[in-house]
């Protein structure tokens, strides 16, 4: 079997469009959970209202693309307010339950047949991404070679000898935008978490009563964190929808949120670069397992009597779930975390 190919594919994916979705979603979650301690289990819903806000505006109502973006972001703000107002004054686990319930409500509303003529029901929607790809500066027919980097009719190939990275011109456009967004958000969050504002958030994570006793309006800060994290989640939804050029309600299931948590914990919560590193590693591991296994099955290395192709996905997710449990037990601070800090976790 072609190990080089599997490895190249996994590396290609590790910095590719889908990884960007996980990184963005987890960056938003990092502000909410990592820094503020808010248990938002509805990050998938923020991505969903972002993606559907855009898709519905453009595909169903014929609005301009930029207006779709604004509508998606507005929907995320409204969702954050709806989730936050009832629960942010209550204990942490109430927010967890409300957000998970709200996410499920959102998903079921989008897949309902009642308004399927607009939303497409469980099939979702497409035909909203053209305005985005019209702006694509990477031409679909470029062909050139520059050392180990080459363009083959719009397809970028970076050949490192042992492995190579390959992206279509559409991927490149999504990645350019996605990585720029990540840089912007990390820049903003970097400023915020090192400011007095960020200090209040960390204080709330540690003990909100104490912060309240020091004259801070804890509710307002929590709400700000929920809204900003949700907005970043909606942006993750945009990138997700545009990269796939479609939206489907079932893509925004609760598991989507759980993967954001895996990414965040893998990289290290309350670490600025944790989500990006976690997303790259998560998606690399997923791809190397999934593709390695299917390659091995295809080439007859593993008999189909042991596992068949349909079982590869479940097996990889089983391994990821196992990895998440083991990680939380044995290295709960993630890759970038600080063990000394974590030992103090007495909650």
């Amino acid at each position: 079997m072609d190990w080089q190919f599997v490895f190249s594919q996994a590396l290609t994916q590790a910095i590719g469009p889908t990884m960007l979705v996980y990184a963005l979603g987890a960056i938003g979650l990092n502000l909410q959970f990592g820094y503020t301690g808010l248990l938002n289990f509805g990050q998938a819903a923020f991505a969903a209202v972002g993606a559907y806000g855009l898709a519905l505006s453009v595909a169903a109502f014929g609005l301009p693309f930029w207006l779709g973006i604004i509508i998606g972001l507005g929907a995320a703000v409204i969702l954050a307010l709806l989730m936050g107002i009832p629960t942010l004054r209550l204990r942490a686990d109430y927010l967890a339950i409300v957000t998970i319930a709200a996410a499920e409500i959102v998903r079921r509303l989008f897949r309902a047949t009642v308004w399927a003529e607009h939303t497409g029901g469980s099939d979702g929607m497409r035909e909203f991404s053209d305005p985005f790809f019209e702006l694509n500066p990477f031409p679909p027919d470029a062909t050139w070679t520059l050392g180990f980097i080459s363009m083959d009719s719009g397809r970028l190939i970076v050949d490192f000898g042992l492995f190579d990275l390959q992206y279509s011109n559409r991927d490149l456009w999504v990645m350019a935008v996605g990585w720029a967004l990540i840089a912007i958000f990390l820049g903003i969050l970097g400023l915020l978490v090192h400011s007095p504002w960020g200090r209040v958030l960390k204080g709330i994570r540690e003990d909100e009563e104490a912060v309240r006793s020091l004259g801070k309006n804890v509710f307002a800060y929590k709400m700000q964190a929920l809204v900003i994290g949700g907005l970043i989640g909606a942006v993750a939804g945009f990138v997700f929808a545009l990269a796939r050029a479609n939206v489907q309600p079932d893509a925004f299931s609760t598991d989507f949120t759980f993967y954001f948590y895996i990414v965040l914990i893998l990289g290290g919560a309350a670490r600025l670069f944790g989500p990006v590193l976690g997303a790259a590693l998560f998606w690399f591991l997923y791809n190397i397992f999934a593709q390695g296994l299917s390659e091995a099955i295809n080439s007859g290395l593993i008999s189909t009597d042991i596992i068949n192709q349909t079982q590869v996905g479940p097996l990889v997710f089983f391994l990821l779930g196992l990895g998440m449990v083991l990680l939380l037990i044995f290295r709960p601070q993630g890759i970038l975390g600080n063990r000394r800090e974590l030992m103090l976790d007495v909650r």
Binding site: S195, P196, W197, R199, V200, K202, G203, R205, E206, D207, E209, A210, V211, S213, L214, G215, K216, E341, L344, D345, V346
Partner: peptide, 23 residues
């Protein structure tokens, strides 16, 4: 209610009133 995973200095600074940077 010490804020356990913050430094002693950060514990003090968070107490200061009317901080502009908290907006």
């Amino acid at each position: 209610k010490a804020l356990t995973r913050m430094t002693v200095m950060d514990n003090m600074l968070i107490g200061a009133a009317n901080q502009v940077g908290e907006r």
